[in-house]
């Protein structure tokens, strides 16, 4: 055997084939294999190049904008890159992004874990499958449709809840409501919660399904109630899965653009009350300011996009590391 068959020597070597087959094999093996390996490795490298290019180009434009910024890019409460001198900062955007994502997570994580438990442990067998299927489908509804629904259905229907929160929790200052349209960070948080529910549910469901049957049966045999089984066997097993599912949801909430842009009425100051219109998020600001942006304006928006990129990279990287630690579960199908 010569070098042409090297790559199959690790496999059980067949008895020498007849001359014609051997010739065919030799003729096809070397260049074909080399080209194919080159192509597929090239695609992999191309992917890495894209990631690097994203970082490089965003940084270049962002550096250009930040060098012209007369305000402090991190702490200025204003977005006026077209002024002379240009003044803009991401303080309000960072605040809005973080607050709306926290609200979304606070609502979506417990509810999604609840639905995942419902599908795997509570629902009748015949119902569980179809429900999981429907929630899978809902993960595919585009964000523009959520935005439309949020702006034209959710916002008008929030008034009652807002009035209520104002009556009973208004004294905290956080839930004070002046009576304007409900286009606030709080409504955005609720809408984001609805949007990330399906993804968190799907990933948690996969984890709960992998809890070893033996653990649950052992707990049941000791006389545990269903809740005790979940608390002692299911949740400890699924903890890291829930965390990484939440991080994936968080990544999506942080970068959500159109739905936020359609629901929020933005402004460049921070109000103490979550119920008053105002504030903004990174992605929303880019989408709504892009129309009127000049060159420096575009660069400024790209700079804020870079910040968003870094934040989502960190969140997603953390989620993936947690998943990787438990190799048997892959979030790939999310």
């Amino acid at each position: 055997m010569d070098t042409s068959t090297q790559n199959i020597t690790t496999q059980p070597v067949p008895p020498p084939a007849d001359a014609e087959q051997k010739r065919a094999a030799r003729g096809a093996t070397r260049p074909g294999d080399r080209i194919f390996l080159g192509l597929s490795r090239g695609s992999g490298i191309f992917l890495l190049v894209i990631m690097a290019a994203i970082a490089v180009f965003l940084t270049l434009r962002a550096a250009n904008a930040i060098s012209k910024d007369e305000g402090n890019f991190l702490t200025t409460f204003d977005w006026n890159p077209t002024a002379n001198p240009p003044v803009f900062g991401i303080a309000v955007l960072a605040f809005g992004t973080v607050v709306s994502s926290i609200i979304a997570m606070a609502i979506a994580v417990p509810v999604s874990v609840g639905i995942a438990l419902f599908i795997t442990h509570y629902a009748p067998r015949k119902l569980g499958g179809p429900i999981a299927y429907v929630i899978d489908l809902l993960a595919a509804v585009p964000s523009i449709v959520y935005g439309l629904w949020g702006a034209l259905f959710l916002v008008p229907h929030m008034d009652g809840l807002y009035g209520w929160l104002d009556d009973y929790l208004g004294w905290t200052g956080i839930f004070e409501w002046q009576g304007g349209a409900a286009r606030s960070l709080f409504t955005v948080g609720i809408l984001l919660a609805v949007m990330i529910l399906p993804i968190i549910t799907n990933v948690s469901r996969e984890v709960f399904r992998q809890v070893p049957q033996m653990h649950e049966e052992a707990a049941l045999a000791l006389g545990a109630t269903r809740w005790e089984v979940i608390r002692m066997a299911v949740l400890p097993f699924g903890r890291s899965g829930i965390i990484s599912a939440s991080m994936l949801g968080l990544g999506r909430a942080l970068g959500e653009t159109m739905a936020v842009a359609m629901v929020l009425s933005p402004s460049f100051d921070i109000t103490a009350s979550l119920l008053d219109p105002g504030g903004g998020t990174f992605a929303q600001n880019i989408a709504s300011k892009f129309n009127e942006a000049t060159e420096i304006g575009r660069d400024a928006l790209i700079a804020s996009g870079l910040v968003l990129f870094v934040i989502t990279l960190l969140v997603n990287g953390a989620a993936r590391l947690i998943i990787a630690r438990r190799k048997e579960f892959s979030g790939a199908n999310a």
Binding site: L47, M51, I54, G251, R252, G255, T257, I286, A287, T312
Partner: peptide, 8 residues
């Protein structure tokens, strides 16, 4: 890459 926001 799966997590890159579409706007980015």
């Amino acid at each position: 890459m799966t997590g890159i926001p579409s706007i980015v």
